[in-house]
Design a binder for these strands. Structure first.
Lengths: 165, 165
DNA sequence: GCCAATATGTCAACATGACTGACTTAAAAA
DNA sequence: TTTTTAAGTCAGTCATGTTGACATATTGGC
């Protein structure tokens, strides 16, 4: 049970390591979202609006279904924030060409501006963390994070080195 | 601006890389919290209760102030969930010995049991991700995550290799 | 062309978890 | 003795999620 040489229980080490992992995720997420939250508050928006703005900015012309699949919330929940964003001129909806039932989402110029403002802070935070950690650490980070994500959404992240190792 | 050999704009690559980082964090957090949420619902609890149970389990005898500093919520917000947890016998409060104004928090046997049940799922998720990614990737993950966290809370994570490099 | 399935939207009621602001109590520290 | 600190409380509000029921327009299968 206990390593005779070091006097340290390897099972305890594993538990400590995994708890630290859990906490790293908690603290990182907490601090990562705090900055945008402050900006959003000035617009009378919240984190939910940020997510919509981010993903619509990332995938212009995406459908409501696409967005729901990413956010994993009900359409009633999405409806409120999306409605506000359309109402206030940050997002536009246009009818799909192939499938006229679909509403294709896009950011307006105003929406793009807010998206840039919000994402810029988060990009800067990652840029700093990446730079300080180095390229090798970044690759490790990506692998571990990908391992945390449910299989269904992993294909969203193309492998960097297809023929790695 | 554009690399003549590859025809790829390095600024675009950087933007793409940083956006993927943002999304890795979003999807990982989303999926990481989904499992415990389902368990908590059976107890009539939510994510807020989980956080309290987790950190009290992690730091038995911690004060209310300590907990507030970690969660970064108001004491009124904490009050409700903590009150419920005490009421229903998952957490106990005892008066501090040195400072009798403090309420030292601890999990009851019942609380410990729930904590184990919740944390077990999250530990398993990280254990799998860590195992699949390998030791080197884990160290990279730790470095990047630490870089995302505000300076104030980094000392919570002791350096693994004090004399690294 | 009819009909079922799909994409989207809407109304209503409710739960959770956060907030601000004002105030109280008990104990420690100055 | 007075001030500060740790904790708690009451009241009201807001943001964001839920379920359930239903409506509309359009597509796709037979």
């Amino acid at each position: 049970m206990t390593d005779l040489k070091t006097g340290i229980n390897p099972l305890f080490l594993r538990d400590e390591e995994l708890r630290q992992a859990i906490e790293l995720l908690f603290f990182a997420y907490r601090d990562f979202t705090a900055e945008p939250d402050a900006i959003l508050a000035a617009y009378g928006f919240g984190r939910a609006h940020h997510r919509v703005i981010y993903f619509v900015g990332r995938h212009p012309g995406m459908t409501v279904s696409d967005l729901l699949a990413i956010l994993k919330i009900t359409k009633q929940s999405l409806s409120r924030v999306l409605g506000q964003l359309v109402e206030e001129g940050f997002v536009t909806q246009r009818t799909g060409a192939r499938d006229r039932r679909q509403r294709l989402l896009e950011l307006t110029e105003k929406g793009l501006e807010l998206e840039r403002q919000l994402t810029e802070r988060q990009r800067a935070r990652f840029a700093r963390a990446y730079r300080e950690a180095g390229a090798e650490a970044v690759e490790g980070f990506r692998q571990v994070m990908l391992g945390l994500i449910d299989d269904a959404d992993r294909p969203r992240f193309p492998t960097k080195n297809p023929g790695r190792r």
